[in-house]
Each structure stands twice: as structure tokens, then as C-alpha cells.
Simulated assay, not measured.
Amino acid sequence: MAGWGQSGTGGHGARLTIDLGALASNWRTLAALAPGAECAAVIKADAYGCGTGRAGPALWRAGCRTFFVAHLSEALAARAALPEAAIYVLNGLPPGAAGAFAAADLRPVLGSLDEVAEWAAFSQGARPAALHVDTGMNRLGLRVPEALALSGDPRLAAAGLDLVMSHFVSAERPEDPVNARQIADFARVRAALPGLRGSLANSSGIFLGGARHDLVRPGYALFGGNPTPGRPNPMRPVVRLEAAIVQVREVEAGASVGYNGRWTAPGRRRLATLSLGYADGLPRSLSGRGHALVDGVACPILGLVSMDLIILDVTDAPAARRGASAVLIGDGLDVDAVGKAAGTIGYEILTGLGSRYVRDYDG
């Protein structure tokens, strides 16, 4: 692995390491939980910040054959990395885009009657697509009555549908009654549209009874996020983020730190500066709330997170010195914990990891 300041650190003393072996292992774990279903992979947002060009082929080698992305641009990048895969585009068919989808052998997830009509007129049954039914999100998809009314509609055959899907509102909270309502509504739609494969379960949905159907489509869990909040994480960590300390200094009582002097030293303290910040995906909301690990010691983030710099209190970390490593994700400090400290979720942390990192890949 490259040393600090070499190509593997992006030139700013930080290193983002992606464990492709753990990624593949997580896919196999989730596939085993749904033995009667195909296990796809959601690799939108550049594979949750991990890099579609490396994460996609690693999942393919593990046995994954179907992938989901959000946008046409993401699908084109995925196609370049996965020439033989089935690739669905979750955010639907933009007006006039059918030709671009067909040229790259991509499958739109049709989310409105207008999209169904446009794809049917273009495809004439020759190219597959999915139908998105809204069972509670009120975001994308046909409403349940619209989907039921399609039963026997000739546009279904012309649209080449091979999959009907919906999306859970609250799968990470098994006790939420909305889950049972969505499962029941989805069952009604499937009964009205026989012959189509069904997909409802996202990462957390795989752990709900009655939700796996013919195809499950995990995303966040593949990349190490916990699909069962409040319970032990069954996934292996995939992402590790560490940064080199670029400077260490001592300050006396009363010295302020960072913009606007938001933190003041209560006594003599030892501070370390890291060369990364909110431009690299470490949210400003971690100011005064998050921490990093230096030789296993939790070192609080002081003052405001800057665009390119973070300051730690390393008074209790004797190993802290110029060039030493501070871990921001990894060694037990998982992405969900970082998200919680930032007042957000681990998804946002992963997908926000910036372009200044060079991704190093293990496995």
C-alpha cells in the first residue's frame, strides 16, 4: 500500500481503502438469506462512493448478475464496467431517452403511465423494463390503483416488462405497521400482473418476513452499513478512511481553535491537524461532535470542520505526531457511528466521500 504523500493518498495525506473481498462476502451473505430469490446489487452514487468501476466487477465475480443505478449517466458507467450484466435505472425514463437506453442495453424502471406508454411505443416488446409501483413512499411509481388497472392492458406486453418492484418506507424498523401494508399492497399488484418477477426488499427488507419475492436488491448493506439498526451489524466493514497528521502543536488555556473560535482550551492541550474536511465528505456537522482514532485512542474533533482541515485533541494520544495515522472510518468506528455523530446517516457519509481521494482497493 502506498505511503503518505504517494499516489495512494490523493496527495493530501488521506487514504480511502475499499475492501473488495468484504464487499463480495457481504453480497454472498445477503444472497444466502434469500435462497429462493436472485440477489441483485444497487451500485448507485458511484457504488456508494466506492467506485463503480471496481465494485461492480467485484460483485460480478462473486456471482451477482443484476445491478441497479439511479441515473442514465450512472448506467452508462456501469455498462462500461459490466458489459454482460442486466442494469436497471431506478429513476425512470426521461422524455426522449429511450434510444439512449436501448443503445446501451439498459432497462428503465418505468414510474408513470407516461413512461410506460413512451417505452412501449419505442420498444414494441423487444426490450425489457421494470414497472415501479408506489406502495407508500409517494415519490416515484404508479399508484396501486393505476397498476391494478393495467391488468390486461396491451401496453404491458409492448413495454416488455419483466419485473415489478416497489420500495419500503421503513424496512429498517420491523415494528412499523406500514411494512405489512406495503407487503399486502404489493401482493395485490403481483396477483393482478401475473408472470412478472417481483422485487420489494432493499437491504433492510431482506430481514423482513414475506418481502423477498423473486429478486432482492441490497445497496447500503453491501458496503458495510448496518441493515438492522439497534442490533449487531451482520455485514463486514468495506470502507476505511485514514488521514496523516500534518502538524502537532500545544496550546495553553484560553486559546481558541478554528473559525469563530468555537472551542477554547480549558487547559494546556495538544492539538493535531488533518488535511481533509467537508470538501472531502466529512460534514461540518461533525464539529465538536465527532472523533478520530489515533493508535486506538478516541480524539475529539475540535472547533469547526473546515473545507480542507480538521483539528483533533490528541492530548491523550502519545502516538500522535507528524505523519502518524488518524482513522476516521474503521477500527470499530463504523460509518453508521460517524453518520450518527454528524446528525445524519451512514448513507450520506459514504456517498459524500469526495473526489480528492484516490481509492485503494484490497482483495
Rank of each mutant, 00 (worst) to 15 (best):
S170W: 15
G5P: 00
I43S: 01
A70R: 06
R270Q: 03
F68D: 03
A130R: 09
G210D: 10
G11Q: 13
R269F: 09
L90H: 06
A211D: 03
C50H: 13
P57F: 07
P234M: 08
C39D: 04
L282I: 14
L76Y: 03
N138T: 01
S151N: 10
A104P: 00
R262P: 01
G21M: 00
G111Y: 05
G152L: 12
W4C: 00
A102F: 04
G198Y: 11
I329G: 06
F168W: 14
N202G: 04
G125D: 11
A78R: 05
D280Y: 10
W263T: 07
S203C: 07
G125M: 15
T135G: 02
A211K: 07
R143E: 10
A317G: 11
A157Y: 10
P229V: 12
F168R: 12
R289K: 15
V246C: 08
S170M: 15
R79P: 09
G21L: 00
R322N: 11
L208K: 12
R127K: 12
G290H: 10
G224C: 12
F223V: 04
M1P: 01
P232F: 06
L222R: 12
G219R: 06
A32D: 09
P57V: 08
S112N: 03
A34E: 04
N179W: 14
L196C: 05
N260R: 15
G209I: 02
V327K: 00
P232A: 08
S199Q: 14
A324Y: 06
R190K: 14
I245L: 08
L274G: 09
E146L: 13
A221T: 03
D280I: 10
V109I: 05
A37Y: 13
S73M: 04
C39E: 10
S306M: 15
S199E: 08
L208E: 07
F122C: 03
L302V: 14
V164L: 11
R359D: 12
A192D: 07
W119I: 07
E115F: 06
T315S: 15
V358I: 13
R322P: 04
A130F: 07
V251S: 00
A98Y: 09
L193I: 07
A121V: 00
A319P: 09
L304M: 12
F207R: 08
G36Y: 04
C299W: 13
V257D: 01
L282H: 05
R356A: 14
V178R: 15
N202E: 02
E84W: 03
A24V: 00
E348R: 14
A192T: 11
R270N: 00
L30M: 14
D336L: 13
D105L: 05
L113V: 02
T135D: 05
L193F: 08
A22I: 01
L274A: 06
G281R: 13
